[in-house]
Amino acid sequence: MNVFRLAGDMTHLLSIIILLLKIRATKSCTGISLKTQELYVIVFLTRYLDLFTKYISFYNTTMKLVFLGTSISIVWYMRYHKVVKQTYNKDQDTFRHYFLAIPCFLLALLIHHEFTVIEVLWTFSIYLEAVAILPQLVLLQRSRNIDNLTGNYVFLLGAYRALYLVNWVYRYFTENHLVRWIPWLSGLVQTTLYADFFYYYIKSWKNNEKLQLPA
């Protein structure tokens, strides 16, 4: 474990906590894409299949359970909670997320470390996570005013994978130059998708003005 990976995991955890607090405190999920949240549940389910078969560390197991539990509860709130589900922007959250999932699955069938169920599904989760934020970014462009919590959520979500990129560089130089193209390139694509959001987020933060994404 290195400081970059720990910072990445904590940033990721913080982003999810912020979203969960926003939904619970305001009883509203306005501006949040249910499609993206559902894709994240699929990402965690397909990535943590070895949760009960391979013990890596107490930290690893705990974090996996926390990520699974929080992401599933967010989807539950947005789908079934009587008050929260009324605030879901159903007519604006129209991104066809299975158009993202299917190519990722096909790509995982073609390009993977080894052809086993666990490994192909893990690879699928890596590819899917890279594009899972797209429905949320599209929704942000459509929704006129973005509330601070939602802006912070998306920012931290993007920042965590950027920290993971630094973690991979660090591990490459300190752990016998292990090359891991699949997570590296996917992580690069994932972080790049946030580039313009990062630009507008930092601009709004510096000018102390409301976050607005150009349509």
Binding site: H12, K54, S57, K64, N167, L178, P183
Partner: peptide, 10 residues
């Protein structure tokens, strides 16, 4: 143990 690249990460 067969070291899976990246399998010790979240």
């Amino acid at each position: 143990r067969h070291y899976y690249p990246g399998k010790d990460e979240l």
